[in-house]
Every structure is written in structure tokens, then in C-alpha cells.
């Protein structure tokens, strides 16, 4: 894929719902060993929250950071696997609530956990082609795990949004390069009309997550002539905490470049939002001139990988909206029965 010459992040925003359920609480219900859990706790959307409301919250923060008025936005693409409606776009709702331009291109994108970065691919392309000035790329999910399934420990709720526009000096970070790597790999799916996804257990690992993530990273590094040493931070999709650390080991990436971008231990796997939330966490701390390599993974399967260079605008803009850490500190612990109620798992 060619180099990205003129697309940059002008603002970024994260949203993490305030409710958390501990892995230990889930383990207690299902009789599992609490010392062997994929994450410590996960974020749970409240009764009045869904993908749309969380996408709006993240977008409002992103617009605030960008200093861009909603009316200048002319693309809203929402990547999610938990659309409130099977038919009826989430993107138009988000656009209407934000008050974007009426002349907005909008669609919901589905690619499991990669849908959010797919929105980034679309918006960067639209900006670079000169078709739009500013667009919003959003990843948001209220991920569902069947009660008792392994996924229930990690399937979490959250959103992240990027305001993407032309590369300018005052932007947050410039996109330098992107690649996508896809195959047909049935590691995780949900058929129409079904409430919970199915996963292929250990098949989700080596041939799925690892193969696509590592292939994407290797491709983007080699096409740019970069080595691991040229990158300051690595961001990965995080179905749990182990997987990104395992990738780091395979690619000989020092953990110090990976750990700052870990979010799954405290937030869980926010699916389409996950790697974007992790990227936002890095943007909260990165310095101008630093280089970030962000890689998503979506089941089915594929990875998007981006190289970004942090710009001067970061220093001032990051303070305009709540950071990842600040949002994480807004925390109310709930028990399993409240969790069932909030996530609409009690059906008569």
C-alpha cells in the first residue's frame, strides 16, 4: 500500500462506561479459578448506553481535542459488531446527535474487532483524496459474551473516535503508512438473529490472531524499511493481556514499548474500539516526533496496521478532554446480577 501523504489525527477521544465487573466475580459464578483469568476486570455499559451513545461520547471528546466544529465533519463511519439496529445506521444517529454537516458520508462497518480501524482506513483515504476536510472514524462496541462462555470474562463495552483531517503542523499525529492483511479464517462469528457469537477456541490463536497480526506488522515494517528499533510504541488488539505480549515476544519487541498500550487488563476487550482505545492511551503520553505502530485484529480475519508520527499539536490538545486514565478512574463496581440486567441478558 502506498504511503499516506496527507492525513492526520486532529483529535482523539475515548469513552469507557463507568461500570466494571471483576473477573473474580464472573469466576465465582461459574466455578472457575480466579487466579487464571484473562483480564482483571471489564467495563460494562449502563442500562441507558449502547454503541451509539458511547460513539457520541468518544466523538465529542475527539472534536473537543481537535478544536473542530461538528459542522465541519463530513464523514462519520462507525465500526462495530453491536449495532443497536440490525437495519438502520448507527452513523447517521451519531452524526445527527453531534450536529455534523448534512453533507456527510456515513456507514456502519462490520469486521469483528477490526471494524474501527477499517473506519480509519476509509476516512484517511477520503481525506487524502481531498473528498472531505474532516471525518470521524469510530470504533464502538457493547460486546456480548454468552453467560458461562470464556468470552464473558473479556467482552466489554467502550468506544474510541478519531477526528481525521489533512496533515497540518498543529495536528496530534500524522499517518505515515498503512497496510491491511486479510484471509478467510473462521475463528469467531455470529450468524444473523443470534444473540451471542461462537468462537473456535484455540483456533482463534495461532492461525487467527497471531498469523494476521504478525503478518501485518512484518509487512508494514519491511515496506517502510523499519526495524522494531524505529518504533517507539507498539499498539495491538487485545482479546486478553497475554496475546499482545506474546506477539511482542515473537517479534522481539521490548515489553516497554508494548505495556504502555495495554488496556485489556482493566477495560476488557472492547472489540472494534480496543486497538483504538489503546492508541488513545499512547497519545495521552507520547511526545512529538515519536513513532507509533498500531495494529488491529478482527476475526474472520484480518489486521490493519498503521505507522503514525506524533506531532506538536499533541501537547496542547491532549489536555482538552478527559484522558484514558481519567475515564478509567470513573468506576463503579457491579455484581453479576446487575451485570445481567445492564446487558439485557435477562429475557423472559
Amino acid at each position: 500500500m502506498p504511503k499516506i501523504r496527507n492525513a492526520a489525527i486532529h483529535g482523539y477521544g475515548v469513552y469507557i462506561p463507568m461500570f466494571r465487573i471483576k473477573g473474580a466475580e464472573l469466576a465465582k459464578v461459574w466455578g472457575k479459578n480466579a487466579s487464571d483469568l484473562p483480564v482483571k476486570e471489564k467495563a460494562v455499559a449502563g442500562l441507558d448506553e449502547d454503541t451509539v451513545t458511547m460513539a457520541v461520547e468518544a466523538s465529542k471528546y475527539a472534536l473537543k481535542r481537535a478544536g473542530v466544529d461538528a459542522s465541519s465533519i463530513s464523514a462519520v463511519h462507525v465500526g462495530t459488531e453491536s449495532k443497536p439496529y440490525a437495519v438502520k445506521p448507527s452513523g447517521t444517529l451519531v452524526a445527527e446527535i453531534l450536529g455534523t454537516s448534512r453533507k456527510t458520508t456515513s456507514a456502519d462497518l462490520e469486521f469483528a474487532c477490526k471494524a474501527g480501524t477499517e473506519a480509519v482506513q476509509f476516512i484517511t483515504a477520503l481525506v487524502e483524496a481531498g473528498r472531505i476536510d474532516y471525518g470521524l472514524a469510530i470504533g464502538a462496541d457493547t460486546a456480548q459474551g454468552r453467560p458461562g462462555d470464556a468470552l464473558e470474562y473479556t467482552a466489554a463495552s467502550g468506544a474510541a473516535a478519531l477526528v481525521i483531517g489533512p496533515a497540518k503542523n498543529d495536528c496530534v499525529a500524522k499517518f505515515d503508512y498503512s497496510v491491511s492483511f486479510v484471509t478467510d479464517t473462521p475463528d469467531f462469528w455470529r450468524r444473523s438473529y443470534e444473540r451471542y457469537p461462537v468462537h473456535a477456541s484455540r483456533f482463534t490463536g495461532e492461525p487467527a490472531y497471531f498469523h494476521h497480526t504478525i503478518s501485518a506488522v512484518n509487512t508494514i515494517l519491511s515496506e517502510n524499511g523499519y526495524s522494531v528499533n524505529d518504533i517507539d510504541y507498539f499498539v495491538f488488539h487485545q482479546p486478553n493481556v497475554k496475546f499482545p505480549l506474546a506477539v511482542a515476544k515473537v517479534l522481539s519487541i521490548p515489553t516497554s514499548k508494548v505495556v504502555p498500550g495495554l488496556v485489556a487488563d482493566m477495560v476488557g476487550n472492547t472489540y472494534a474500539a480496543c486497538s483504538m482505545v489503546a492508541l488513545a492511551k499512547i497519545l495521552d503520553i507520547a511526545s512529538p516526533g515519536q513513532r507509533i505502530l498500531a495494529t488491529s485484529y478482527g476475526s474472520g480475519a484480518g489486521s490493519d496496521s498503521f505507522v503514525l508520527t506524533v506531532c506538536d499539536g499533541i501537547l496542547e490538545k491532549r489536555n482538552r478532554a478527559p484522558t484514558y486514565t481519567e475515564l478509567l478512574s470513573r468506576r463503579k463496581e457491579i455484581d453479576y446480577s446487575t451485570y445481567l440486567k445492564y446487558r439485557d441478558k435477562i429475557r423472559m
Binding site: 441507558d48 449502547d50 451513545t53 444517529l93 478532554a321 475515564l327
Partner: peptide, 27 residues
């Protein structure tokens, strides 16, 4: 001000979104 799901209409299952308020998320 935040926008949240206000209610879901029983018959049509249409989701009604609208204004709610919450303590300001501190910066």
C-alpha cells in the same frame, strides 16, 4: 449534558435517544 437511550418503545422497538445529565467527567 449527555445523550442516552431514554426508552425503547414497546410496540415498535424503536429506541428513543435524548438528553440526560451527569456530573461533569473531570479533566
Amino acid at each position: 449534558m449527555v445523550v442516552r437511550k431514554l426508552r425503547v418503545d414497546g410496540d415498535s422497538n424503536l429506541i428513543v435517544y435524548g438528553v440526560k445529565f451527569r456530573p461533569l467527567v473531570q479533566r
